[in-house]
Amino acid sequence: MQQLTPAYDKKCECRVCRQSFTTKKLRSRFVKAADYDSDFCPNYSDETMNPLIYHIHTCPHCGYSESEDFSPYFPPGALDLIHSKVMNAWTPQDYGQDRSIIDAVNTYKLALYCGTLKREKHIIMAGLLVRLAWLFRSMKNADQEHRFLKLALKEYLESYMSDDFKGSSISETRIFYLIGELSRRTHQPEQAVKYFSKVIELQSRSTEPKLIEMARERWYEMRQEQKTAAN
Results as ranks from 00 to 15, higher is better:
His146Glu: 14
Asp103Gly: 04
Asp164Asn: 15
Met87Glu: 15
Glu66Gly: 01
Asp103Lys: 09
Cys114Trp: 02
Glu68Asp: 15
Ala142Gly: 06
Pro76Cys: 03
Asp94Glu: 04
Val105Ser: 09
Lys140Ile: 09
Asp143Gly: 09
Leu129Phe: 15
Lys85Arg: 11
Leu157Glu: 09
Lys166Val: 07
Ile170Asn: 03
Lys154Trp: 03
Lys166Thr: 15
Ser171Thr: 03
Leu81Thr: 06
Leu151Cys: 08
Glu68His: 14
Leu112Ile: 14
Leu178Ile: 15
Met125Pro: 09
Asp103Arg: 10
Ala78Glu: 03
Leu151Asn: 01
Tyr113Met: 14
Leu149Met: 04
Ile82Phe: 02
Thr107Ala: 10
Ser169Asp: 14
Tyr95Cys: 02
Tyr177Pro: 01
Leu81Arg: 13
Leu149Asn: 01
Gln93Pro: 01
His146Gly: 11
Leu128Gln: 00
Asp143Arg: 06
Ala142Tyr: 08
Asn88Met: 06
Ala126Ile: 01
Phe176Ser: 02
Phe148Pro: 05
Ala104Trp: 14
Glu181Gln: 10
Ser171Gln: 04
Ser171His: 02
Met161Gly: 07
Lys150Pro: 11
Tyr160Gly: 14
Ala133Gln: 00
Tyr95Glu: 00
Ile170Ser: 05
Ser171Pro: 02
Tyr113Arg: 14
Glu158Val: 13
Leu117Met: 04
Glu181Lys: 03
Ile123Gln: 09
Tyr95Met: 00
Phe70Tyr: 14
Ile101Asp: 12
Leu178Asp: 06
Glu66Ala: 04
Asn106Glu: 15
Ser138Met: 13
Ser84Thr: 11
Ser159Lys: 10
Gln97Ser: 15
Arg147Thr: 12
Glu66Leu: 11
Gln97Cys: 07
Lys154Pro: 04
Arg119Ser: 12
Tyr156Ser: 03
Asp98Trp: 05
Asp164Glu: 09
Met87Gly: 11
Arg119Trp: 05
Gly180Tyr: 07
Phe74Asp: 06
Tyr177His: 08
Ser84Tyr: 11
Arg119Pro: 02
Thr107Met: 12
Phe176Asp: 03
Trp134Gly: 02
Arg137His: 13
Arg131Leu: 11
Leu151Trp: 00
Gln144Pro: 02
Trp90Ser: 12
Pro92Met: 01
Lys166Met: 13
